[in-house]
Amino acid sequence: MLEIKNLHVKLEEEDKVILKGVDLTVEAGKVHAIMGPNGSGKSTLSYVLSGRGGYEVTEGSATLDGAELLDMEPEERAAAGLFLAFQYPVEIPGVGNMTFLRTAVNAQRKARGEPEVSAAEFLKLVRAQAKLLNIDAEMLKRPVNVGFSGGEKKRNEILQMAMLEPRMCILDETDSGLDVDAMRLVADGVNALRDGKRGFLVITHYQRLLDHIKPDVVHIMADGRIVKTGGPELALEVEENGYTDILAEVQ
C-alpha cells in the first residue's frame, strides 16, 4: 500500500541531508511503528510524505496504492487517502472546528468526484465520532485548536482522521504531551479505525503508546535510515535498554 523506496531528502534552504535512503513498505491492514532517537529523521519522513514545503527530495520514491505521492500537492495526497496526525496541531483563529472539518471532508469528496455530505448528515457523523473521543459539543464550536490543551489537540487530530477516513494514517508523536488517560482515548480512537484495510505508520519515541496500539512491525530509525526492523518485541527492547545497544549493534 505505502511503498517508500530509497528516499533521500535534504533541507531546501541549506545543505543538510536528513533522510539518507529510507526503504519501507506498509501493507494494507498493518500497523508499523517507527522509533528512534531525536534527530533521526522520523518527523521529516512524515512531513515529506504529506508534502510540507522546505524539503527537497533528491532521490527515491513514495507511492500510495501505486500512485507517486511525491508528485502531488498536499491536498491531492489527502484526497488520495493519506493523513498525517500532527505532532503540533496548528491553531486557526476564528475558524470553527466544525466548519474546518466539513470543509475538509467535502474538499476531499469533491476531489474524488463524490457527492458532498449534507450539513445535517455531517453533524450526526461528527457527534458520533466526537463522543467516542470524549470531545464535547463546545470543543466542536471553538476555533480550530485555539486554546485547546495538549490532549484536546491530539484528540482533535484523531477526530479529523476518523471523519476523513484515510487509507493510510501517519501519526507523528501523537503520544507526546499526553497523560495516561488521554493516551488511552487516543489509542482507542486509532484502534477503532483498524479495519484490516487501512495502513498505519505510528511514529513515537516511547514504547508506552505501543502498549495501546499494538504494532505488527517495528522499525528503528537512526541518522536518516531504517536500521533495524522486527516485531513488537523490538519496541520492548528499546524500552528496556534504550537505543544505544541497538545502534551499536547495527554499526
Binding site: 504529506s50 508534502g51 510540507r52 514545503g53 500537492e73 498536499p74 491536498e75 495526497r77 489527502a78 484526497a79 493523513f83 498525517l84 500532527f86 496541531p89 496548528v90 491553531e91 486557526i92 474546518f100 470543509t103 475538509a104 471532508v105 474538499a107 476531499q108 476531489a111 479529523q160 476523513l164
Partner: peptide, 15 residues
Amino acid sequence: DDDQLFYCRSRGMDE
C-alpha cells in the same frame, strides 16, 4: 502563516 495553510491543505483543501 505557512503552517496554517499547510495544515488546511494536508486535510484536502486547495491553497
